[in-house]
Design a protein around this nucleic acid. Structure first.
Length: 255
DNA sequence: ATGGCGGCTCGCAGCCGA
């Protein structure tokens, strides 16, 4: 079973690349973030024509998440239980017995800003909800844009980023609180190239200079860690014409 | 020191992302 996540930064703009990705990798589940479109504008016909179904939760201009799969996605859920958040950042579904939670964790803007406080509060709510989800679904995948680089090696220059949003200690602690639920970062189960990142700033030739951060992750529950065979970042999609600023992350589990 | 790119919108400038 091949699982993937990708912040597409506008599904309208990136749809041709998403269709190309589906054709190339044939993922069994693809979580998308930052659709930036409302549900009636979701390109379901094109995705169906590619042999995929979709569950999605969109909004205008910002946020928006989806899960695409060739097999049926059942028990779809939107948002975090008991948290009335108008921002469309979470969608869940079960595919072939595997529970997928696709998240677009808030960016946080800057440490000490209102959005940063919202991010940390949001992460607390996500974590307490996931504790229940983990108990219910032993085979669980938490994938998406976390907007957190967990370790020094996930940042091109940890000294520059020290204390900054995406790499501040409270955010890293929040990430470890998710891990403490019994989740593992699938990327770090394997040897990886040095300086592996999943996001590069559009500005300053960030990608060409490999000035990136690894902020997109696929976390697996213990049952799925046991059967995880690979995890990689497909940089090719960041190198294309008119790319998203994020590259897709792909994990394979033998199930 | 700043803004740099790219996507969005009751658009032609300003917002937001990371």
């Amino acid at each position: 079973m091949k699982l993937a996540t990708w912040n597409v930064n506008s599904l309208k703009v990136r749809l041709p690349q998403v269709l190309q990705f589906l054709a190339q990798h044939r993922p069994d589940a693809l979580g998308l973030q930052e659709l930036k479109l409302e549900d009636p504008s979701f390109p379901l016909a094109e995705i169906n024509a590619a042999g995929y179904q979709a569950v999605f939760s969109g909004q205008k201009t910002y946020n928006g998440v989806a899960i695409l799969s060739p097999r049926p996605a059942v028990n779809a859920s939107m948002g975090i239980a008991n948290f009335d958040d108008p921002q469309r950042r979470v969608i869940g579904a079960t595919i072939d017995g595997v529970r997928l939670i696709c998240v677009y964790i808030p960016n946080g803007e800057a440490v000490e800003s209102e959005k940063y406080k919202y991010k940390l509060d949001w992460l607390i709510r996500l974590t307490s909800w996931l504790k229940q989800e983990m108990a219910q679904y032993p085979k669980l995948v938490l994938l998406g844009d976390y907007n957190i680089a967990p370790e020094d090696r996930d940042v091109y220059d940890p000294k520059v980023w020290q204390g900054k949003v995406l790499f501040s200690e409270p955010e890293k602690t929040a990430f470890q609180n998710l891990v403490a639920l019994g989740l593992r970062d699938s990327f770090r189960l394997f040897e990886q190239p040095e300086k592996s990142y999943s996001w590069w700033d559009y500005r300053m030739n960030g990608f060409k200079r490999n000035l990136g951060l690894r902020i997109d992750h696929i976390l697996l529950s213990a049952e799925l860690v046991k059967c995880c065979k690979s995890c990689s970042i497909d940089r090719d999609y960041r190198a294309k014409e008119r790319p998203s600023d994020h590259a897709p992350v792909i994990a394979e589990i033998e199930i």
